[in-house]
Amino acid sequence: MYQKSAWRWLIYAVIGIVVIIYLMPIYWIVVTSLKPSLDIYTKVPKFIFKPTLANYAKLLPGHSDYLQQLLNSIIIAFGSTLLAVALGTFTAYAFSRFRVKGANDLLFFILSTRMLPPVVVVIPIYLMYTALGLRDTHFGLILLYTTFNVSFAVWLMKGFIDEIPREYEDAALVDGYTRFQAFRKIVLPQSVTGIAATAVFCLITAWNEFAFALVLTETGGRAITAPPSIPSFQGASGIDWGQIAAATFIFLLPVAIFTFVMRKHLLRGVTFGAVKK
């Protein structure tokens, strides 16, 4: 008994240290974002200080374009997530329920292209977007992120839809429903979990995407998202950490809230549907 409780303390101590290591930077972000700039650069970290919103004020329009960039991120990430999940669900339904010629080969091929580093296609897409006038547009990035996520969405959703018994739809079809009606009224309500899991994954991917956003938008452009804007947060006097911390904290919020709401479905999404619990 004694031994068991000693073990327990040890395990908790190790886990506790790791949790501190993981949460420390988040703590740092919050604290730094609220510190007056004089208190950030001290030899001994200041734990007691007068919280200020000055760093957040520096992000307001007039001082910086950050809120616009954040809005771009929101439009693009949520827009592409919506599209990818909708399209993914449709396609997965078809692959799950109909005999599409060569479906298995196609799915395997699509999956294997996910193994390729996406940077291979960055240059052709850059050229294509330049030629079509899609560079630095919301639509362009939404379309791109949708494509990035959709093959994954199809795969994940197919797993979920395969689990829904066909009998329900067959009955509905016999009752005179069309395919689309059967899909909308029978399949959709039963795939809510799958849709949530897929959405979390797609959103996180699109929200944090950096390389393509960097190449396909302009600094100070119309559609530039938050991630590629951050490295340019350097004033004449060097990097303003207070401002960056404030920007990071605001950036965290939307996706953290979304993930928190969807937390029950997080696991299945990030494990590519491999884990059902």
Partner: peptide, 25 residues
């Protein structure tokens, strides 16, 4: 035809952003 209707948008996107850029590069 319904199956193909469901699958087409996906295939088009895949060709446009997957296959074409790969060959082009």
């Amino acid at each position: 035809y319904a199956p193909y209707l469901f699958v087409t948008p996906f295939i088009v996107l895949f060709l446009l952003f997957g296959v074409y850029p790969l060959i082009k590069s």
